[in-house]
Amino acid sequence: MTTRRMACILCPSGCELDVRTSGEPTADSVVVEGNLCPRGEEYALEELLNPRRTLTTTVLVRGGVGTQTSVKTAAPVPRESLAAVRAALLGTTIDAPVAIGDRVAEDVAGTGVDVVATRAIPRRSDPVDVRLRNR
């Protein structure tokens, strides 16, 4: 029987889990304490068997207000593929305008997961939203 303390990273509650395993971890053999919700148990098991992470970074934008936008993997990817995902995005440049959710890369680094924009970038030539200037 081994006990491992891990912080659940699914939400900002950040429950500190006490995870007890004996032998190979399975849904039945793993005992999780300290989770405020059932997701904590799922997280602990997945963390033992197949840890996944959401990668967030930036890519360059041409013709926009500012030079870059932020992006994320549309779903968590296996932890060991984070470096490959980041490498695949290096040098990526997209054109303004950018809307939140726009696809920036498809099936990135063979993970089956897309990369999407997380910040809207208007074109430099577009007029400023009047609601932001109406005084």
């Binding site: 699914l10 939400c11 509650s13 970074t57 930036t58 994320k72 939140i100 997380t118 910040r119 809207a120």
Partner: peptide, 24 residues
């Protein structure tokens, strides 16, 4: 807008968002 990592929004919107998405 500069907090591009995720982990925002679970309490306010019931889903995990990045900072810029939460701001929007």
């Amino acid at each position: 807008n500069q907090c591009i990592h995720d982990g925002f929004g679970l309490q306010a919107f019931g889903e995990v968002l990045t900072g810029p998405e939460f701001a929007a």
